[in-house]
Design a protein around this nucleic acid. Structure first.
Lengths: 214, 214
DNA sequence: CGTATCCTTGACTTTCGTCAATACTTGTGG
DNA sequence: CCACAAGTATTGACGAAAGTCAAGGATACG
């Protein structure tokens, strides 16, 4: 099990370069251990966060006890936009994560750059809708992997900071279905699982074809 | 069948009060016949629209030919927000619809009110995600009906401007599943179908319970 | 080295999609 | 006014896909 959320892990080792970079910024990097809550549902909204390193999930608990993950965010991305005065969703760290807060104008107007980010977030939510709306689990998974690969720099190797449960709650399927379809892609020679959290893409074309993003 | 989209129907009869109200506004109401395109995918974004009467669907065509409806908008609502310079989605009228355009600041900054509307739209997209992510078709349908009822003023009678196909593409299911589950609700005595486009809610509690919004 | 968590795989069941037939609605033209 | 046609909606039978339940393996941590 991970270290308890209430204890700041002593052996936390964020990349040196990122820490050094953060010292030149006006705002300090706050460290969060895996599983830590960044903000809660119902809390007062307003603060925006930028991820220096690590990964975050944005979720919501449904009445029936199920959990919907509405977004994953990785290093370099900004999150925390909300439509009302209070948070509709809660944010948690998936792995050891470093965060900085982002300045918002006090006069109630977002800067054009922040406005752009907020609207990009809306588009991302709507794109996500297209994926979850798809009927085939294999396609959903392919889109998820391609998206993650592109956000990580289009490498042939994808790092999955999240668990199968997270992926399932994100794509609207069970962890068994996630696992089964990863195995299907593996036995088709499309990808190789270096470990359960590290995927090497062997046939990008096949994966892109399955994802068929539009 | 409805009148062809290229012909402005002469017998269009928008509510008198709304037309009268529109005369006091600086911007004129434009009339659109059912099925008319308001803007297209790939078009330059920027213009926002307010619905004076009627209903609109926001959609996107997927690579496999399927269509995802990402939102319905009814009278009083504003739509047209986009994250980039071009439209990612297209908008069409569902029924005879009257639209006015909404002013945006020229200096590149949205007013606080518009910012609020844009973020509300983002939340709406994420709420929609929660619904589409649900596994059970009956629950999805219940949430859809409750949402529509609330937006129409919480009446015991819901007006459905859209077809079963629209509903299916919105909830990520086939028209047969939509129809079957409406029948299921009918035979359970939860609702009554006055016509295929007009639903009377007989047991709101049961419907709310199924929807179990959170 | 033992325990807890995470992941994978198999057997079975349920739900939903597909195909197809039929009924209802609405508009058009004789 | 009635008949026909096109679009829309409902219902049934069947099969495929995903969920559920359960067991066992892999991995990380103390």
């Amino acid at each position: 099990m991970y270290a308890s959320a209430s204890i700041i892990s002593r052996d936390l080792q964020p990349p040196r370069a990122l820490l050094a970079k953060s010292f030149t910024r006006p705002r300090p990097v706050t460290l969060h251990t895996p599983g830590t809550e960044i903000y809660a549902q119902g809390e007062t909204a307003g603060t925006l966060y930028r991820i220096e390193f690590g990964a975050v999930r944005i979720c919501r608990l449904l009445a029936d006890g199920r959990r919907q993950v509405v977004a994953f965010h990785i290093a370099g991305e900004t999150f925390g936009f909300e439509g009302g005065k209070v948070r509709s969703f809660f944010a948690e760290c998936i792995v050891s994560t470093g965060l900085t807060t982002v300045e918002i104008d006090r006069d109630g107007r977002y800067s054009p750059e922040l406005m752009e980010l907020a609207l990009k977030e809306m588009i991302r939510a709507q794109e996500h809708l297209l994926v979850v709306g798809k009927q085939c689990a294999l396609e959903k998974l392919a889109v998820f992997l391609v998206d993650l690969a592109e956000r990580q720099g289009g490498l042939g190797c994808i790092d999955l900071p999240m668990t199968r449960t997270d992926i399932g709650d994100y794509l609207g399927m069970t962890i068994e279905t996630v696992s089964r379809n990863l195995s299907k892609l593996r036995s088709a020679g499309v990808l190789r699982l270096r470990s359960s959290r590290s995927i090497e893409i062997l046939k990008p074309q096949r994966l892109y074809c399955l994802a068929s993003k539009l």
